[in-house]
């Protein structure tokens, strides 16, 4: 089932939260809404679920306008940030809730409910914990119960609000992989909200980067990571170094000493830490920098450097290169940026 929102506007107490959001998610896609806290991503999710009414705009689920459809009738499963489990009910009853409240023809017999819930609990390997209460479970277990509780009513769309936000790193990684696998198996249309760029890039088919109630960029993880559309996306996704420099006739010069001449534009230049070539010999296209600190714990060696323009930055190089250059803190090296990115200066103004 596809999701299409058009020109969604929403304010709380005259504070705009969503400023004209339009987005389409195709059937079977898993999309991440990524942005800093307060960027409106959770509100957008709640608007799609019907938990929040937009001030204006249209929401189409599978090409049907759902403006007048209540949350419970939208066939949307929602997983809440803090699980929102019913604490006076056992795991079993939590999962069965959506089936028990059904009325009329869609109501299942007791045996059928039992069967279905047991199957769902098997899916998360918790069938032996069916009689536990939520407070007797770990965070990861609660999150999985919350997930199958949402799946029990067979939604066509699954919305997850910071699904792994309050879990520790290892459980998070595990659940992330599990969610991706689950999504590939049952093929729901899914949107999840996160402020963790790594999570978004790893799990999602497409990433929607949001800031201050607006969509900054929509694209595959590769697109948004390698071709960020704005300064915000560039700085929000992964580490990045900021330099000041000048652009003249399409040629970029680092450093901002002196004032720019008429044909030069002073600008901000962005380089990712892994986009540096580091050597011991000066050349025409590199610049001098001093090593402040070396951190070799990790897949790469991270150098914290200070350029001769007095700007501090970080560069990642391979362990082999670091060994062959025999680097020590305090040494002088020569650095060449491989991939420099400049964004139109007027972008932030609107």
């Amino acid at each position: 089932m596809s999701i299409e929102v058009t020109n969604i506007i929403k304010s709380f107490n005259e504070q705009p939260v969503l400023k004209d959001i339009s987005l389409r998610v195709d059937t079977g896609e898993l999309v991440a809404l990524l942005g800093p806290s307060g960027c409106g991503k959770t509100t957008l999710l709640r608007v799609i679920a019907g938990l929040e009414l937009p001030d204006s705009g249209r929401i189409m689920l599978h090409d049907e306008d759902v403006a007048k459809v209540q949350a419970g009738k939208r066939k949307v499963g929602f997983v809440f940030q803090h699980y929102a489990l019913f604490r006076h009910m056992t795991v079993f009853e939590n999962v069965a809730f959506g089936l028990r409240v059904r009325r009329g023809a869609s109501r299942l017999a007791k045996g059928a409910i039992r069967q279905k819930v047991t199957k769902l609990l098997q899916l998360i390997q918790m069938e032996n914990l069916a009689d536990r209460y939520p407070h007797q479970l770990s965070g990861g277990q609660r999150q999985r119960v919350a997930l199958v509780r949402a799946l029990a009513v067979e939604p066509k769309i699954l919305l997850l609000d910071e699904p792994f936000g309050s879990l520790d790193a290892r459980v998070r990684q595990e659940l992330r992989t599990w969610l991706r696998k689950l999504h590939d198996e049952i093929h729901l249309t899914g949107i999840f909200v996160t402020h963790d760029q790594e999570e978004a890039l790893e799990v999602a088919d497409r990433v929607v980067v949001m800031d201050q109630g607006k969509i900054e960029q929509v694209g595959t993880p590769q697109e948004v990571f390698h071709n960020p559309a704005s300064e915000f996306v560039m700085t929000f996704l992964g580490n990045v170094n900021l330099f000041h420099g000048r652009v003249e006739d399409g040629k970029i010069t680092l450093g901002q000493a002196g004032s720019a001449t008429d044909t030069q534009i002073i600008t901000r230049l962005f380089v990712r830490p892994h986009d540096f070539e580091v050597s011991r010999t000066p050349a025409a296209d590199n610049f001098q920098a001093a090593i402040l600190r070396i951190n070799a714990a990790g897949p790469n060696v991270r150098l914290e450097l200070k350029s001769r323009f007095n700007e501090e930055f970080a560069a990642d190089i391979s362990h082999e290169l670091a060994r062959s250059l025999n680097l020590n803190a305090g040494d002088t090296v020569y650095v060449k940026p491989r991939n420099v990115r400049v964004f139109p200066p007027n972008h932030k103004a609107d």
Binding site: H82, R87, V153
Partner: peptide, 24 residues
Amino acid sequence: DVEDAAACLGASRWQTFRRIILPE
């Protein structure tokens, strides 16, 4: 959020009250 959760799972306002709020 527990009320929102109940609503998303298809519970009516009365069912939410009767099965979620009152027991709590």
